[in-house]
Every structure is written in C-alpha cells, then in structure tokens.
Computed example of a mutant assay.
Amino acid sequence: MTMATYKQIESLMGTGPPAGAKQMQVMRWASKNPPKDPNASFSGKNVLITGSNTGIGLQAAIKFAALDAAKVILAVRSPAKGEEAKQKIIAATKRESAAVIVMQLDMSSFESVKTFAVQIQAQVDRLDVAVLNAGIAPPKYATEKTGWESALQVNVLSTALLAILLVPMLKDTAAKAGRPSQLTITGSFACQYVQPDELKLSPGEKLLEKMTSPEHFNVEKSYGQIKLLTQYVMKGLVDDYSYDVNGQVDVAIDVACPGYCSTDLGRDFPWYIALPTKLMHLYCARTAEEGSRSLVSGTLLGNAGHGKFWTNDVFTDPGIMVTSDEGKKLQRQAWKEISDICKQKMG
C-alpha cells in the first residue's frame, strides 16, 4: 500500500461509537455523528450501483457522479424509475447525460441477473467499482418465482450470483489498472445481534431450506439473519474469487453498513410496524445521504478493508455468528449451499 493510500484510509477513519454502548445507544450516537463525507476522486473509474433509483443507493450514485466517476451505472428493476433517478443525478451534479447509464436488473430473477452481467460487458469497457446495494425488507412471508423466500432471493442468492458473474470484469479491469478493483456489499449492524439459537440446524438440515420456510420467517429477526448471510457471502467471495494466480488481491471485497437510515425500505410494512418505525426515525435515524457516505467510503478502502465490516467510519466486529467457531462452521455450510446454487444457475 502506498503512502498516499495510507493517508486516504486515515482520512476516512473515525472514532466509532463509545466503547460498551448498547444497541440503542449506538444508534442514537450514530444519528448524531454521521460518517465523514468522502472527497476522493473517482476520475476515470466506472462505478456500478444496484438498487440506485432511491434511498442510499441514489444518494451514493449522486456522490460518485459528483466525485467525477467516468460512468455511473444505475442497475434498477424499473428503467422508468432509473431514468428519473438519472435526471436527479444530472441536476445535482451538472454531469453530462452520457456519464450516467441506466440498466435494467431484477434481483428477484436469476435470469435477469445473468442477462445483466452479459449486457454490462457490452455497454462499458471496464468496471472499477461495484456496489451491490439492492435489497428488500419484506413485512410478511413471500416467495419469488424461483421458490426462495423474497429477501433470501434478492439480498443473498441474486447478490452472490451477480458478484460471481462480475468478478471476471473486475479482475480484467484490475489487471489493466495495476491495482485491485472494488466490490462492496451493503450490510447492516443487525447481523451483530443474531443469536446462535435462531439458526440451529438439525443433523442433515440445510440452512437455506430452513430460512426459506414459512415457519421460520419472523419479521423482527429475519432481516438480521439475512444480513448475517451477507457477511457469509462476503467471506465466501473473499476466499474463492478475490485473489489472482500469484495470491495477490485483485478484487478487494468488503461489507459496508450505512447505519439506521430514514428511507422507504420499510414502505410495505403494516401500520402497527410502520408507526413505531417512524418514531424510531425521529429518534435515531440518519438521512439517506448520510448513510450513503459509508457506501462510498467503503469502496475506497481497498486492501485495508478486504474481508472486513465497515460502519461508522471504523472496522467493527460483525458479531458472534461470524467470529465464533459455531459461526464459522455455519458460514462454510451457508456458502457451500449458496455457491452450489449459483454454479447451477450459471450452467
């Protein structure tokens, strides 16, 4: 790592929450202490952001465009909403229309993910940064046409498949640039609070089958469990896809948490959940713009952030279900199940 890079990383780092603070205390602290706003240049770099027509994804896209990214690629389910987002970005940054590309991507569909991976290679000649931000928080149990529970499909399986399919393009760009490309996945501190008894498996039981069953779904706990799987996916990608033939990192991979933000992520929740959520927003939520700063800074960490969890301007412990022996064992099982599904879908 060059001295310039050390200085850049140092400029992104903060103090983090007070030691020993409880969950609500951390959230309150975070709302009063938003992340630093990165000002590094992305000149000459192409940046992809999934789920970028609203919320923190849109705000991150605005930042990348303002920081002079050569191309900002908005991967969105609705092209019409993507075009609306593009106009907001252009209005906010005064960039040329050609600097923002809208592409259709439906993360509920394996086929859409595969089609997108082919199309992006045809539309841009390089990919320096990929931010896999698309995600949902369903208020009730539902499955996609694939048969998997909706959040498991969108936030985990399709995200893993897309990452794997983008790796060759990221590696090719890294080889040309002489430095690692970057893959950042949007995570959540909710993974830190998942308890071992939530994901206990019977002998021979598969984790994904357990998590996709209607009996397992719990609106209060499932989100944290899905975000735990995000950590598991990151670890699997690091082990299997991030190194070149010489054992050097050519795709730096991390998970970045924007913190608790006031967005429309819970827009479909029933009133008895939406109302306390609104009150929580008033008490301890960041704005979407503040949260998006962590996504942007997460893409600047390179080797320093490789395989790590970034939130509140610090690297932090992702929780007992990642760091414990039991968590590591579950990660290996989860990644094998996820990886096998991805390989099957890739043919």
Rank of each mutant, 00 (worst) to 15 (best):
S181I: 03
S150V: 06
P17I: 07
W310D: 07
E84Y: 00
D172A: 15
F64T: 08
L201A: 06
V167G: 05
M1D: 10
T5A: 13
M103F: 01
Q123E: 15
D244L: 12
T299V: 14
K200A: 12
A4C: 07
S150M: 11
T50W: 00
T93W: 08
K88V: 14
T212R: 03
W271E: 01
G259C: 13
A65K: 04
G44C: 10
L208A: 07
P138M: 06
L265A: 05
Y193I: 12
T299R: 00
F64C: 12
E149H: 11
V255I: 10
E215N: 05
V245Y: 09
A285V: 03
G236F: 10
I9F: 14
L207M: 10
Q248H: 11
P318E: 07
C284V: 08
K32A: 15
N33C: 04
D240V: 08
R126Q: 15
D172V: 10
N303L: 13
T146C: 05
V156P: 05
E149P: 09
L295I: 03
S43F: 06
G347W: 02
V251P: 00
I56Q: 08
L132I: 09
E10K: 15
D68H: 15
A21N: 03
Y272P: 00
G147K: 07
A80S: 14
G259Y: 02
S222Y: 15
S112V: 09
S31T: 02
T50H: 01
V167I: 15
M107A: 05
I73Y: 11
I49R: 10
A285Q: 02
E83L: 03
C342L: 06
A85F: 02
Y6E: 14
C257T: 10
V314L: 00
L166R: 03
T184H: 07
